[in-house]
Amino acid sequence: MSETFVLVLLSAAGLGVLLCLIRFFKGPTAPDRAVAVDTACTVTTALLVFMAYYFKRQIYLDVALVYAVLMFIGVVAIARFLERGI
């Protein structure tokens, strides 16, 4: 029961990342690609926390925290570049 639950949710979130990746390849302009990466990063943060539950180790939560903080900085850097002034 628990194993199938974890696997179904992991594959659902993985499907979400895959859809964002298709939008990344199709997107006509650079802002479309930035939106796809932003969404994929939020989904990935949730996925990392879920993997911490799957492996039952608390140290994996720190990876999710660091990832959330630094992805914010990366996306804001991309947006500042698009706005012509870093």
């Binding site: 990063c41 180790r57 140290i59 990876v63 990832y67 900085i73 990366g74 850097a77 991309i78 570049f81």
Partner: peptide, 23 residues
């Protein structure tokens, strides 16, 4: 099962490389 390497990869790959390439 290498959380420390994952943390370093996230910090360098996500924030640092993006910011340096933008500059």
């Amino acid at each position: 099962q290498a959380p420390d390497v994952a943390m370093a990869e996230a910090s360098i790959g996500a924030a640092l490389i993006t910011a340096v390439f933008m500059i």
